[in-house]
Amino acid sequence: MNRLKKIVYNCHKATFLIEKKQIGTITLREKIELKIHLAGCVICRIFQQQSILINRTVKELFQHRQMKLEDDFKKQLQQRIDEELTNQ
C-alpha cells in the first residue's frame, strides 16, 4: 500500500494528525493527507469536532473558575506568615 492510501484508510493515523495539528504543526504533506482522509471519513470528522470542543471547554472552564479558601485556613496562614516574619 502506498503512503497516501495508508492515510486515506487509517483513522488511527488521521486522529493522531488531528491532535498534532491543533497544538503543533504538521507538514504540508500531512495536511493534504488529512484533508483527503476527512473528506471521506465522517467518523473522524466527528472526532475532530469533539476534540476541538474538549480543548475549548477545558480552556474556558478553568479560566472562569474562582474558588475560595475557608476563613479558618486563611487565619492560620496569616498567623504562620506573621510568625515567620517576626522570626526573620
Binding site: N10, I43, I46, Q50
Partner: peptide, 15 residues
C-alpha cells in the same frame, strides 16, 4: 487503523 465498531465516535448533539 480503522475505528473498532464499539468505539466509533458518535455525535454528542452539543457540538
Amino acid at each position: 487503523g480503522h475505528w473498532n465498531d464499539a468505539y466509533r465516535p458518535q455525535l454528542f448533539g452539543i457540538e
